[in-house]
């Protein structure tokens, strides 16, 4: 079988994205006819449109964030969820909102990014990362250190939310990954993500060089320390801004890059290009599914993803670890 040409894959993925976008605009908790949507007072662009915009942006951000983290660490399981980076961002966002009630959306986002950065730093130190070695050496310890950070940060964030009635109303859905139905000042994080996604394309070839080894990258004129710093900064900003909008979302950053890398082969920039429409489509689809299956109620997109993500993770694991692989050391 000849592999699909990249152009066809791009077309396929963007068509999928367009289809899901149409569904996201068409189907909601309330059933409406198409004409009512177009002319009615439901406010297509302010209601469902805004929600779809949030879902697609965050979906793309988390997918790219996972892809870059996996490339950097050489660990196909690394994603902003498992590594605790999202959880760190969530904890800082909740803490800021609770202790500084006057904080604007921008301030909450900056503190979420700071939280993501702190969690990433803790992860790097716990897993024993060495900038001179690139991502080598931390591949195995990474998920374990990440789980510890994730559990700690999420439980602390949950405690903060549950001790305060106002926080409960605002953040109980958010912590399980809900796409916001109405704008509460998400413009700043949305624009931040778009900027970071654009800048990330320039990082791809540099990061791909690092997979040849830190010294090899350096001898080809790309300092590995700079590559690592830029990649971690990108991951931190994307994850922090995403969490500020929809809360910590699991599995997307793991599964979408897995599929994208499978389609793209060794070309990181191509995988990046696939991650954007695919990640956007997956989170929008989860949101639509959550709105439709329990009408007139609603399930948060994060919960839907976690439900299907668990199954997906099992599939990834069976693919990554063929039977008997665990016996080898």
């Amino acid at each position: 079988m000849t592999p699909l040409r990249p152009l066809y894959i791009y077309l396929l993925l963007w068509s999928l994205f367009a289809l899901v976008l149409l569904c996201a605009l068409r189907f909601g908790t309330a059933q409406m006819s198409a004409e009512a949507l177009l002319h009615g007072d439901a406010g297509l662009l302010s209601g469902r449109g805004f929600r779809a915009l949030c879902a697609m942006t965050v979906g793309a951000a988390l997918a790219v964030s996972g892809l870059m983290l996996q490339s950097l660490t050489g660990n196909p399981l690394a994603d902003p969820g498992i590594t605790g980076i999202n959880a760190g961002a969530a904890l800082m966002a909740v803490a800021t909102a609770q202790f500084v009630p006057s904080a604007s959306a921008g301030v909450v986002m900056v503190s979420a990014i700071a939280g993501a950065g702190l969690a990433g730093l803790a992860l790097w130190l716990l897993a024993g990362g060495d900038a001179g070695l690139g991502g080598e050496g931390i591949a195995l310890r990474l998920p374990l250190a990440g789980l510890a950070i994730e559990a700690l940060c999420l439980s602390l964030a949950m405690m903060l939310i549950l001790t305060d009635a106002q926080s409960q109303a605002r953040y109980l859905h958010w912590i399980s990954g809900a796409i916001p139905p109405v704008s509460r000042g998400e413009a700043v994080p949305l624009l931040t993500i778009c900027g970071a996604l654009g800048a990330g394309i320039f990082l791809c070839n540099r990061l791909a060089l690092l997979t040849l080894g830190a010294d090899q990258s350096h001898s080809l004129g790309r300092n590995p320390r700079v590559t690592i710093s830029l990649t971690l900064a990108l991951v931190t900003v994307l994850s922090g801004a995403s969490v500020a909008i929809v809360g910590p979302i699991a599995f997307l950053g793991l599964l979408v890059p897995f599929v994208a890398r499978g389609l793209a082969g060794p070309v990181l920039r191509r995988a990046y290009g696939y991650c954007v429409p695919l990640g956007a489509a997956v989170l929008m689809a989860s949101d639509v599914a959550g709105r439709v299956i329990v009408r007139p109620g609603e399930i948060d997109a994060g919960l839907i993803l976690a439900m299907f993500g668990g199954v997906g993770l099992v599939a990834v694991l069976t693919r990554l670890l063929p039977r008997g692989a665990g016996v080898r050391t």
Partner: peptide, 14 residues
């Protein structure tokens, strides 16, 4: 990098 190429020991598997 335009003056000298360097090949480390044990290149990684890609």
């Amino acid at each position: 990098a335009q003056f000298m190429a360097y090949l480390p020991q044990n290149p990684p598997l890609v």
